[in-house]
Amino acid sequence: MTSMLKDLSDAGVSVWLDTLSRGRIKSGSLSELIRSRRVVGVTTNPTIFRDAISHGMEYEVQMSELAVRGVSAEEAVRTVTATDVRDAADLLRPAFLVSPAGQDGRVSIEVDPHMAHDTTATIAEARHLTWLVDRPNTYIKIPATEAGLPAITETIAQGISVNVTLIFSLARYRQVAEAYVAGLEKARAGGLDLSQISSVASFFVSRMDTEVDRRLDVLGTSEAGALRGRAAVANARLAYEAFEEAFSGERWNRLHRAGANKQRPLWASTGVKDKAYAATKYVSGLIAPDTVNTMPEATLLAVEAQEHAAGRDLRSTYDEARADIEAIERLGISYAEVVRQLEDEGVAKFQESWDSLLTATESRLEACTRRLHTWP
């Protein structure tokens, strides 16, 4: 085991993999990452599944069976993705069983992002996906939109564990934490066992630098250049400060005494977009207990290749993080405008990826149907 991966685990950072495919499951690749690289969770999104279904021959038999039944592309997507998530959850079940309160060993599956602005549909989809996957170590991914917030509360109240995704702003993060706590209070009032309910809040990291750096480059000053690559880590560090505030005090302590689990921050989008930055930038800069870092495989391998974790515990960096955000705003770059843009773009990108996933699935179904019709 390499030192940096061990350093992360020792610091209370759970290492998750931000990709999934049937080929990875069948080949033993996922099992190997679990065994040798401390991977204790998996996240997915429509783009990941689109790429897997488009190119993976491992889906051929199931696609042929779905084609024979004449199912829609939407039903096929739910069936195929639920199968992969279920199989990955089974591989991660040992990690789930030994994790405190079963917070690791989890696999996430996303509601249709076209429901991002429909509270009722999101709740119904979360219930359906929970039934379809039928594994206790599953997270249902719900986007942190305004309509998503009450859906998070109600889904948690029904005892369904949730991965809240597409969080960019500190204000939205605080609303997400509130939605989770409110859901736990409703669950407790309904007589549910709070220890069986879990959640993570996926705070997106690298996209913040991408947008802020673009605006800094437009300014083109030396002062602007000195702030490149500082916004994303600063934003995430301040989110952790908000996490500490949200999960303390008497209101939280009452729930904790009843068995409730903290909603851990999950650092998402941790692959660097700018090659000028170290491949481990969004890992080594965000080390703190009770966090998850979900990494693309390339980032995981870069972490593995590094001898020790270069960063310090982020709890000592709050003042520095605030100073970075304030310096960026003094240059005329509005934090509120950036995070609002990133949320809107994030939902739109996931919707586009979902549509692309449906198109890829439809193509596979049509190809299977044509082959079936040409059989002697």
Rank of each mutant, 00 (worst) to 15 (best):
E125C: 11
E320V: 10
T359C: 01
S284K: 09
V338Y: 13
E307R: 13
L314H: 14
A268Y: 00
H308G: 12
I167Q: 04
D290Q: 07
A367Q: 15
S27I: 08
L286F: 05
A95R: 13
P100F: 02
A323P: 05
E65A: 13
P296D: 12
L266I: 05
N137A: 08
A177C: 15
L30H: 12
G271H: 05
Y139K: 04
V13W: 13
A242H: 00
L20S: 09
V218F: 04
I167W: 02
G220D: 02
R78H: 14
F350K: 08
A268H: 00
E297H: 12
A310I: 10
Y139C: 08
D324W: 02
A187Y: 03
G70F: 12
S9Q: 12
R257T: 08
M295K: 10
I333P: 08
I34G: 13
K6Q: 14
Q351V: 15
E343H: 06
S195P: 11
R330Q: 09
D313Q: 09
Y180D: 02
S72T: 15
R38P: 07
L357S: 09
I328W: 03
V164C: 10
P296F: 10
Y240H: 02
A239P: 04
V61G: 11
I333S: 02
Q158S: 07
S169F: 02
W131S: 15
K349C: 05
E329K: 01
R257V: 08
G259Q: 07
D344N: 04
I287F: 02
